[in-house]
């Protein structure tokens, strides 16, 4: 496996990362219901081991795909690598500037205009006003939003929303782009444009970590892929091999996986 090579060309090094959530059983936890449950001595919290000892390296300029069924820990892995969630155990080393598209963070306040959201997102990400102003034109042009940039984001269609979020993520000049592919939706025209832009980011010696359920995308874009299942890394290798193993598993089901991999 390539993860044992020298560290000087490593962009992301993930070592034995464990993430455990204590999740509230209720959807909308309230003080009232917590007190009621405490009175009845009911357990309110469940522990979920989202990642269990995941280790792999992503090298500079590499596009790493992450596949796995729902609940495999893909999003948790992405958020932990981005520094949004803290690992309970293990260590992650990041070499470079990270930009993320994990949630539609750019539109976090829909009462504000697209422009205000871009500025706020940039400031929160640690850019200066000058840097944001320099990128703003490019972002607007790429997202093809025109005058809509001045309107509150609640007036946007979902496609416009994700176009803007994608435009912001790729225009931050990242060394490492972490992207949840499902969010970079848009119409066919924009999808094509997005693919070209992502390729450009990688060509500029960028590194990318992509989650996708569209296995075609993984096959086409990635140099390497990892397959996660129930928080464990099942296999790492060439995208073709991983996709084959993963689709076999999807067709056959859990039993085969247990026999094959544990």
């Amino acid at each position: 496996m390539s993860s044992l090579s020298a560290s000087d060309d490593v962009a992301i090094r993930i070592q034995n990362v464990h993430v455990t959530f204590r999740v509230n059983v209720q959807r909308n936890p309230t003080l009232k219901s917590t007190l009621v449950r405490m009175g009845r001595r009911q357990q309110n919290v469940r522990e979920i081991k989202a990642l269990q000892g995941v280790s792999f390296d992503v090298h500079k300029g590499q596009v790493m795909g992450v596949v796995g069924a729902n609940g495999a820990g893909k999003s948790t892995l992405m958020r932990t690598v981005a520094g949004i969630l803290a690992p309970n155990e293990g260590r992650i080393d990041i070499y470079g500037r990270v930009s993320t598209l994990l949630a539609l963070g750019v539109g976090f306040n829909s009462a504000l205009s697209g422009k205000e959201n871009v500025v706020l997102g940039g400031l929160a990400a640690g850019l200066t006003r000058k840097e944001i102003a320099a990128k703003y034109e490019e972002i607007t042009e790429f997202a093809e939003l025109g005058d809509f940039m001045e309107l509150p984001m609640k007036t946007y269609s979902s496609g416009m929303f994700s176009r803007l979020a994608f435009a912001v993520a790729v225009h931050m000049d990242p060394d490492i782009l972490i992207i949840d592919e499902a969010l970079s939706a848009g119409d066919a025209h924009f999808k094509k444009k997005a693919a070209v832009k992502m390729k450009q980011v990688v060509d500029d010696a960028g590194t990318m970590l992509v989650v996708s359920h569209a296995l075609g995308v993984i096959k086409e874009m990635c140099d390497e892929a990892v397959w996660l299942h129930h928080g464990r890394l099942i296999r790492q290798g060439k995208p073709d091999e991983i996709i084959e193993a993963y689709t076999n598993f999807l067709n056959v089901g859990d039993d085969a996986l247990v026999l094959e991999d544990f």
Binding site: I84, V106, F108, G121
Partner: peptide, 9 residues
């Protein structure tokens, strides 16, 4: 919410 989910700060 969405900002917290997307950006470390």
């Amino acid at each position: 919410g969405a900002l917290i989910m997307n950006t470390p700060f």
